[in-house]
Design a binder for these strands. Structure first.
Lengths: 232, 232
DNA sequence: ACAAAAGTGTTGGGCTTACACCCATGG
DNA sequence: CCATGGGTGTAAGCCCAACACTTTTGT
């Protein structure tokens, strides 16, 4: 191959999750640890350099695993960022991914070498390294859009959940409250929910009935699109 | 910067246009000319290697200009392709763009050095180099999707056009025919069209009235989204 | 008995669809 | 005068949005 200029290439992964109470949308960030590296001590989206002949998505999952031990249940390519000057170290192009993880697999820990990883609420973020604020904003926009035409609950909720949980997912992501009756009617009409026998107990109020997703119907819906726009 | 592996990075641009009669959706392809290069003589999406510290979109526009003299009126990043083995020459990552050009600026010519450039109808494509068939398929899918929630006529039609022209754009891209009355009602309701005084003459049938886009209203609509789904 | 969350139906309005005929010009 | 494409209106049905009270449990 002719001797063309070769930039460095990284993959970065914006991981979204919901907190236990499904009350807030969170992003997984790492604290840049290694002394002497760029943006030392700054918070950043997890990611790193791709290896020789490594597939991009594979690299994204690898970096995520190495830095946070997270295994996302969904991942998609977001966009590629290559503005000159975005990395003070030189010409670095970043292929960004967006990922979702389930509430019940939020067991996150940092890397061995002093790197810290934790969840941040999307509306109280720290300053971010590089152009990561821009990347994150892009991811958030994408998620808010995606939610309107593809189902998204399966990748964010535990296996078994209540309709109120699901409604809270949408309210949290869209940042507005939805009408309970209209929400339920609409969700049920898609036929992707099957009732789980058990009932949740112990909480105040009438015990809710539990559901799980019908995986096949869910994936069919994912293909064809949803048109999910529910009223305030 | 530490000595990480560096792949080569290319940008490739899938350019869509409509033919004069607005009757077919076309893609601009180039014939790979230089002897001794990979896929010599094969048709391919225009593109090439990025230069040092060059912005990705700038590189995309530059390659397009160099290879086809086309200046798209719209361009957006599509996706990045990095599957190992996609380029026989080694580890090459391609950032793909999708672009639209207006009918009346279709003056295309190949590069100086024997490279040929021409339009191909999207449903009669030649074999393509690398994974360009996959990239093109992705672009086509994106365009067909985009059309449903963003206006697209401004970037494909000449400055002045008829409602029938516009309808044909949608029919061509979506690949299905639409109801004339419903189409007109819907389009007019967006308030992005202003009537151009003149009338087209010379063709058989009643002379149509001409319109142009109200740029401001158009761009506002582009922001907020359109919800454009018209019936067969 | 009270607080807390779950669950449940109906109605009006607006938008979408389906559909067929006349109009203005060129040849 | 005829062929060609341009232009126009209406009625039926569906889906969406708005809205308030009853049920079931824990304390």
């Amino acid at each position: 191959m002719p001797n063309y200029h070769r930039p460095s290439v990284t993959v970065d992964v914006v991981v979204f999750g919901l907190d236990d109470s499904v009350g807030a949308l969170k992003v997984l960030l790492i604290k840049r640890g290694r002394p002497g590296t760029a943006f030392e001590g700054c918070w950043a989206i997890p990611g790193g350099f791709i290896e020789k002949d490594e597939d991009l998505e594979v690299a994204a999952r690898r970096e995520l695993r190495e830095e946070t031990h997270a295994e996302p249940s969904y991942i998609e390519q977001l966009a590629t960022f290559g503005r000159p000057g975005r990395d003070p170290r030189g010409h670095v192009i970043s292929v960004a991914y967006m990922a979702l993880v389930r509430c019940d697999s939020l067991v996150i820990q940092g890397d061995d070498d002093a790197k810290e990883a934790r969840w941040w609420s999307v509306d109280h973020l720290p300053d971010l390294a590089f152009d990561h604020a821009e990347i994150l904003a892009t991811a958030l926009k994408r998620l808010r859009n995606k939610v309107r035409w593809q189902p998204v609950g399966l990748d964010l909720l535990p296996l078994v959940f209540t309709l109120s949980d699901l409604q809270r997912v949408y309210e949290t992501i869209l940042g507005k409250s939805l009408d309970k009756r209209n929400f339920r009617r609409k969700v049920m009409s898609y036929g992707v929910l099957v009732s789980a026998e058990s009932m949740r107990v112990g909480s105040p109020g009438r015990p809710p009935s539990l559901f799980r997703f019908d995986r096949e119907a869910y994936e069919a819906l994912q293909e064809e699109g949803v048109e999910f726009e529910v009223t305030a």
